[in-house]
Amino acid sequence: METRHYEVKIESNLIDDIRDHTRWFMGLGIVFLILGIAAIAFPWVATLSLEIFIGVLFVIAGVAQAVQSFSIPRWGGFFLNVGLAVLALIIGLLMLFYPLAGVITLTSLVAAFLLIAGILKTVFAFQVKPAIGWGWTLAGGLLSLALGLLILFQLTEAYPWVLGLLLGVDFVFTGVWMLILASKARQTL
């Protein structure tokens, strides 16, 4: 009984917080919705932007790790840390100077992730087959597997747009979710 009271209190606090910041949730939801629609409409631009952003993150991480390596005197992990910093810098700079290769690499990684996730989900679904919802797990696994194979077999045609499209779909769903959440919180006044 105590657990249910705790859950109700958390839900009530969450609704109160959302209601107090409804404008932020609505505004952020609209921003995500617009960015998602733009990414779906222009997936190549979104894909390239994502690749450049990841390249910049690698460069920043490499510089930060190099600074950290030299800031700790007589540290046993100095050479490993410097090596990782150099690796991050090289990857980041390669992604920035050769964005097309970076897009192909990222798309290949997404395809590999979807294939592996699809296989694992499918196997898991058959392991828990009598359980409630095993069919949804199987459907999700087969969908991930199909998307991974689609990207893999269509890589030369898919790489310019697939990441941007996936990012756009995620942003649209995030935007819709935030708008619905803010709307529901307002209705509980």
Rank of each mutant, 00 (worst) to 15 (best):
G76V: 12
L57H: 15
G27D: 13
G141K: 04
T3N: 03
A66Q: 05
F78P: 04
V8Y: 04
F32H: 08
P73Y: 11
I180V: 08
F53K: 14
L80C: 00
G135D: 03
L48I: 15
L143E: 04
I10L: 08
V45M: 05
T22W: 08
L109H: 07
M26P: 09
E2G: 01
E2D: 02
L50M: 13
V176D: 00
P73L: 08
L50N: 13
A112W: 09
V45R: 04
I91K: 06
V67W: 07
A131I: 12
L179Q: 04
L181G: 13
M26V: 12
R19P: 04
W24P: 03
A64S: 09
F42K: 11
L181K: 11
A125V: 00
L14S: 08
Y6E: 13
L28I: 13
L84K: 07
L165E: 02
L165S: 02
I37C: 04
V56D: 13
V8G: 03
Q127A: 14
V162C: 05
I119C: 12
A139K: 05
P73M: 08
L149R: 02
F42G: 08
Q154Y: 10
P130V: 13
V67A: 15
V86Y: 02
F70W: 08
P130S: 12
A101R: 07
G133C: 01
L120H: 08
V63C: 09
L109Y: 12
A158V: 05
R4M: 03
D170E: 06
P99R: 03
S12L: 13
G133S: 01
V59M: 10
I37R: 01
G135P: 01
F70M: 03
A139E: 03
P130L: 12
G175M: 05
F32K: 02
V176Q: 00
I180T: 00
A38R: 07
W136C: 08
A117D: 10
Y98R: 13
L189M: 03
L14K: 12
